[in-house]
Amino acid sequence: MSDEVDVPEDHPRYQSLVTRHRIEAGVEKGITSMQGLIAEGRGEAFDYLLGEETIPSADRAARAAAAHFLLGDHPVISVNGNVAALVPEEVVELAEVTGADIEVNLFGRTEERVRAIADHLREHGAGEVKGLTADARIPGLSHERAKVDADGIYDADVVLVPLEDGDRAEALGEMGKKEVVVDLNPLSRSAQVATVPIIDNILRALPNVMRHARDLSGASRTELEAIVAEFDREAALDAAEQRLREGAVADDE
């Protein structure tokens, strides 16, 4: 991004400082909220305990996520303020690789903020960005995240739900959608209800999903379905929790 903070790349907390700056810049641009900074701090603590690396189970989850997206008839990437601020290029590239739609969905929704995020994504190469129409509602939710596009998230069969509150994740699951969740906390509601929980930093998770999607782009439907069937979501959650609690994943090789 052009507005990166001036921190030497060899600084031991370089990535952390850059991440905080991106969200701070997003607040100034009308993309993120002040609450987004709090959420980032919470996630950073979990990432520190994970060793700030992609553990093997998270990489397997990223591969399963790629397979789900390639198998899906209508995959959609849901984008909130922090996602837009942190990984706009990666969102756009993943959508291109997998043929997914991009849709803005916010808890603190205003039309101005949705437009700002859509414009920001277009500045990073996105074509159509959904979320402004908001002509459908997710059943069971009373807040602004219930508002979705009828031809976007509402119609999707696979949804990437990164950095998400758990109630919408639960509601999407009840609609029968396959959910790929990116969350650094394996005990969160989002991770617990996900079809594929990727317990990783979004800065690593999205490039990993994209890499696997490229690798699997020529795979047959049978191969992709085998990858989906072999993925063990409970084992992925357990491995991440073990790393958080013990700092080692002896059984996650």
Rank of each mutant, 00 (worst) to 15 (best):
M210P: 00
V182Y: 05
I55N: 00
E93G: 04
L163M: 07
D155M: 05
F69C: 13
R221V: 11
V209S: 08
M34F: 13
R145P: 02
A229V: 07
T133F: 00
D232R: 10
T222S: 14
E230F: 13
V228I: 09
A171E: 07
E4N: 12
L206I: 15
I198Q: 09
A169D: 09
E241C: 02
R42H: 07
H11T: 11
I117E: 09
N82H: 10
G72R: 09
G99M: 07
N208A: 15
A126S: 11
L106G: 03
R20Q: 14
V7R: 04
D73A: 15
E111N: 12
N80C: 02
V228Q: 08
D59P: 00
R211G: 01
G247E: 07
V182M: 06
V97K: 03
A150T: 07
G43Y: 10
V114E: 07
D165E: 15
D73H: 12
G43S: 12
V5T: 09
V161E: 08
V5H: 09
R137S: 14
A65Q: 06
E9L: 11
D165M: 12
D238T: 12
G51D: 06
T133A: 14
V27T: 13
E174W: 11
V159L: 02
I31K: 06
R145F: 04
L184K: 01
A171G: 04
G41C: 05
A236Y: 06
T133M: 10
A67T: 06
V159D: 01
A169F: 00
E174F: 11
